[in-house]
Amino acid sequence: MSILVNKDTKVIVQGFTGKEGSFHAEQCLAYGTKIVGGVTPNKGGQEHLGKPVFNTVSEAVKATGATVSMIFVPPAFVADAVMEAADAGIELAVVITEGAPVRDMQAAKAYATKHNMKTIGPNCPGIITAEECKIGIMPGMIFKKGHVGLISKSGTLTYEGANQVCREGFGISTAVGIGGDPIIGLSYKQLLPMFEADPETHAIVMIGEIGGDLEIQAAKFIKEHITKPVVAFIAGQTAPKGKRMGHAGAIVSGGAGTAKEKMDALEAAGVKVVVSPAEIGKAIAEVL
């Protein structure tokens, strides 16, 4: 068991034949992900990485039965790609692309929600169910199979966290990089109950950062609904106010969205909050 994706999940790639799409699709195939085809307009009928290429997502879904799409199209085309996936009946879109305009994501997410399509990202490393299915750009080898679920706004902190958990002798069930943009798809609040319901997940690592209030919403949700132990780290305790720290959404504006308020809320919800990401592994060892 795991959440959202497993060894049987059928995946297509939008932006399949592009440089990034090709490189990472190949890595995912090597990991064992069931990539069943891809979409690049005007390249339909060709074969790429031994898989069929389609002109539209709708054709790809009809021909392959894919339920998940991994999206690598350029930023200006992200909204179009997400909406096309939703329209074609895709159940989960994983958007890797960084730099999609906020207004576009707002519209795309609203449309996806209307079509019951879940979205991960944009600007994220993707999702991985250890040793079964990797949909994204993370290095697969650091995710050993185990019982810790991981949700993170940051790519490299996902790897840092997973690596520590595995070094402590535990492993990962599923890890989800949700991205650091102002508007994102699935967030802590939607993913936490999935991990709570997954019998293979025994504890959850939650990595957040400054900006917005998703971590505060998560804290409220954990307090009421989550019984499994949660370890959290919030990046940006030392970040100056009003400065955007790399991620489009990582900014303390008007004094709101600070690391401290998030850490306090999580602590009050019974979460084990660590002050440095170097403590994540140890904290998991303590709660498990």
Partner: peptide, 13 residues
């Protein structure tokens, strides 16, 4: 990575 960059600053602190 932006998250690890912030996490590094936090750890130094």
């Amino acid at each position: 990575g932006a998250g690890l960059a912030m996490g590094t600053m936090d750890t130094i602190n």
